[in-house]
Amino acid sequence: MQTFYTIAVGPLAWFAWAVFLVGSAWRIFSMASLAKNKEMAAVAYFDTAYGMRSIARWMTPFATLGWQKNPVLTFATFAFHISFILLALFAQGHAILWEYAFGMRVWALPPQVASALTIIATLSCAYFLVRRLSNSTVRFVSTPGDWLALGLATLPFITALLVRQSVGDPLLMTLLHVLSGEAVLVAIPFTRLSHALFVPFTRAYMGSEFGAVRHCPDW
């Protein structure tokens, strides 16, 4: 297991990052050229200022009609995404790895905060799960891809909790945590997690159409 762990934090990590970065760049590039080839009638209206306005608005909790009408989901969505990004970038263990590998000094979250965020993210995922099962609309439109995305996004938090709470063999749990994180990286360009790549564009495009053509808020 020691050997496997060494591989997981070494070559596998390089592989995961490479797939994530190259895959993401390729997806965005190929989608952009598809848009340019076929949809200039839409691309022509792209407007950075209106795009940013829409992104900013939708990144503000409860600032849009949709957020207001779905309050619990809004809370969970923001809690999850904020926790995800903060922990992925600034969890102390992650900061140590950046420092260890490259000598980069990264600011780290205080451990109590990190633990709290991990619990919040896990609870949010639990809510997503319950909602996907119990809300008739969501259940009706859920596909295997949606379950996969939810599972992938949840695993790093659960394993992080297990490590922190010293449940099970610590090395195994840490290994699972590393592997689940790498799985998320690899999956981002190729599963529904790709919304991380594309939402800025779909949001900005909608903001452009509504701002520049429709003269109307898109929130």
Partner: peptide, 8 residues
């Protein structure tokens, strides 16, 4: 290949 590598 001996001794811990993970945080805890």
């Amino acid at each position: 290949k001996q001794g811990p590598l993970h945080c805890t």
